[in-house]
C-alpha cells in the first residue's frame, strides 16, 4: 500500500503539488492520467525521492515517512522496496541488457553472481528478449530498451513499480509491444503498479483504479469505468473528450 498525505511540492514559485491525498492498495494497478504539467511525474518521483516533496507524509506499508524529516537511510530503505520504469528508459549505457538487470540483484541485493545471472536471464526471457542478453542499449530499439527497463524493475521483486509514461517516447509502431509486456506484468505480478500514461485504452483494460490529476490536485479518482466512461467533474470530461477524440482522429 502507498499512501500520500497532504503532499506539497513547489519548484520556486511554481506550485506543482497542492495537497495530494490518496491511498493506493497493495497489489492494485493504479493509472494516473491528467494534462501535461499537472504534476503526475512529480508525484510519482516523490515516492522514491528522486524528487523530494516539500511537506506531507508518504507511507509505504510499514515505512512511514514525514518527507521533511526523511533521512538518507529512510530514502535508501524506500528505494530498496520500489523500482521505476522511466519515460526515456534510462538503461545503463555501459552495461549489456543482461548486466542492466543483474546490477540491482548482484550489487544492491548482494545476490551471488551466478544466481543473479540466472534470475536476470529469466526476466529477460519474460519480456521476450533472451536473445539480446549481450546487446548494449544503443544497439536496441526503444521498445526493446523499455522492455528491458521493465525486466530490470521486475527482477528486484519490489513492493511497488512506478511507471512514468513508459510508452510516450516510443515510435508509434513500438508502443504495442511494450503495452503487451505491461499487460502481462499486470496479470502475473502481485506487486503494486502505479502507471502514469496517456494510453486511455490501456488504462480501461488493466487498471483497478484511475486517478485524474489537474493543476497539482487530484480532481477525481475511482474505478476505470467510472472515471473514464462516466466522469463527474467537468475538467475530467474536458480532458477525456479531447484525448479520446484525438485518439479516434488518429485512427
Amino acid at each position: 500500500m502507498i499512501e500520500f498525505r497532504n503532499i506539497h511540492k513547489a519548484f520556486g514559485e511554481n506550485k506543482v503539488l497542492k495537497g495530494i491525498n490518496c491511498t493506493i492498495p497493495t497489489g492494485s494497478v493504479t493509472v494516473i492520467v491528467g494534462p501535461s504539467g499537472s504534476g503526475k511525474t512529480t508525484l510519482l518521483r516523490s515516492v522514491n525521492f528522486l524528487e523530494r516533496a516539500d511537506s506531507g507524509e508518504i507511507i509505504l506499508d510499514d515505512i512511514h515517512l514525514d518527507v521533511e524529516k526523511a533521512t538518507k537511510a529512510d530514502i535508501h530503505k524506500i528505494r530498496q522496496r520500489t523500482a521505476m520504469v522511466f519515460q526515456t528508459y534510462n538503461l545503463f549505457k555501459n552495461k549489456t541488457a543482461l548486466e542492466n538487470i543483474m546490477e540491482g540483484l548482484a550489487i544492491v541485493r548482494k545476490v551471488p553472481k551466478a544466481a543473479a545471472k540466472e534470475k536476470a536471464l529469466h526476466f529477460l526471457e519474460k519480456v521476450g528478449l533472451g536473445h539480446k542478453a549481450a546487446a548494449y542499449p544503443h544497439e536496441l530499439s526503444g521498445g526493446q530498451q523499455q522492455r528491458i527497463g521493465i525486466a530490470r524493475a521486475l527482477a528486484l521483486n519490489p513492493d511497488v513499480i512506478l511507471f512514468d509514461e513508459p510508452t510516450s517516447a516510443l515510435d508509434p509502431e513500438l508502443v504495442g509491444e511494450v503495452l503487451e509486456v505491461m499487460k502481462k506484468v499486470t496479470q502475473e505480478v502481485n506487486c503494486t503498479l502505479v502507471v502514469v500514461t496517456h494510453e486511455i485504452a490501456f488504462a480501461r483494460e488493466v487498471a483497478d483504479h484511475v486517478i485524474f490529476m489537474d493543476g497539482g490536485v487530484i480532481v477525481e479518482q475511482g474505478p476505470p469505468q467510472e472515471i473514464l466512461n462516466h466522469p463527474k467533474e467537468d475538467r475530467t470530461k474536458q480532458f477525456l473528450s479531447r484525448y479520446i477524440s484525438l485518439v479516434e482522429y488518429n485512427i
Binding site: 522514491n48 528505494r79 522511466f86 534510462n90 545503463f92 549505457k93 555501459n94 540491482g104 550489487i107 544492491v108
Partner: peptide, 22 residues
Amino acid sequence: DKGQLEAAYSIGMGAIQAYSRI
C-alpha cells in the same frame, strides 16, 4: 545523462555504487 544516476538510485544503489559503477 542525468537519467543514469536516477536509474541507479531507483534500483536502490547508494551514491558510491552509482558513481563507481555507472
